[in-house]
């Protein structure tokens, strides 16, 4: 596959070997390995409590004091987008984007990033004046203006309504096509994972039980069949029975 050869030619952006994380007696992450190639979009699925957020926080370097072992190779430029937009309420939108930004002309770069997420008109607004979708777009602008090599998304659209989520997903695909960061998207939404990612992982009891290249064909009919196939496979690995699947979907 094209991605695989790309992965072989270049050193991976993320290189995880034997990563283990524990909370008390419970092992949340149980010695997992993972490579993410340059520009690769990986989605990480898992039931609640499967350790997917713990894994993302380990990659983000946010798990202070959580005991564990393993090797964790991540690039210097890592951006994180959380489920809540996490904008500082006392800073205007543009100042939230420039926060901690180094280098030349931070303001111009921030305004450019806001233009990319179609938020130019709201640059001078206070975060509390924005809708949920707008807040999350500002958070995306803040993460992308740093030109990250690795973009970590922790259920970024989980709190949005269905319509806004759809538009945000399309925007995210556009932005990733333009900036080409390696992406790890943590989500519980199987459809979102298949639509956005090239590769889907399922985490269960601290291990990756599925590592699947989505590979949706361009032709509509074949695409639909492949989508249904991947979806069924992922849902059953998440513990949804065939009976449940038939009754609802």
């Amino acid at each position: 596959m094209a991605q695989d050869s790309g992965r072989l030619n270049q050193p991976p952006v993320v290189e995880v070997r034997g990563l283990t994380r524990r909370y008390g007696a419970r092992t949340i992450i149980d010695g997992v390995d993972l490579d993410i190639g340059r520009g690769e979009f990986v989605a990480l699925l898992g039931r609640s409590g499967s350790g997917k957020s713990t894994f993302l926080r380990a990659l983000a370097g946010l798990d202070h004091g959580v005991p564990g072992s393993g090797r964790l190779g991540t690039p210097d430029a890592v951006s994180v987008v959380f489920q809540d937009a996490r904008l500082l309420p006392w800073k205007r939108v543009v100042d939230n984007v420039t926060l901690g930004l180094n280098g030349q002309t931070p303001r111009e770069r921030a305004l450019h990033a806001l233009a990319e997420v179609e938020l130019t008109a709201r640059a001078q607004a206070w975060p509390t004046q924005l809708s949920g979708g707008e807040q999350q777009r500002a958070a995306l602008a803040r993460s992308l203006v740093r030109e990250p090599e690795l973009l970590l998304l922790d259920e970024p659209f989980g709190a949005l309504d269905a319509l806004t989520r759809l538009r945000m997903q399309a925007l995210l695909l556009d932005l990733c096509a333009r900036h080409r960061p390696a992406v790890l998207l943590v989500t519980h939404d199987v459809d979102e994972a298949i639509h956005l990612a090239q590769r889907v992982l399922v985490l269960d009891e601290g291990r990756f039980v599925v590592d699947l290249d989505v590979g949706l064909p361009a032709e509509a009919g074949a695409r639909q069949r492949r989508f249904a196939e991947v979806r069924g496979q992922l849902l059953s690995s998440l513990g949804v029975t065939g009976e449940e699947l038939r009754r609802v979907a």
């Binding site: 946010l62 994180v80 959380f82 809540d84 996490r86 006392w90 926060l99 901690g100 803040r142």
Partner: peptide, 26 residues
């Protein structure tokens, strides 16, 4: 959550104080 954000943005101690802690305490 804002402390975590400051960590992911690699804020220096000074920036963290000025942009996050002091406005939060105001």
């Amino acid at each position: 959550r804002f402390i975590e954000l400051a960590e992911t943005l690699d804020l220096s101690n000074g920036q963290f104080l000025r942009h996050v802690v002091l406005p939060a305490a105001l």
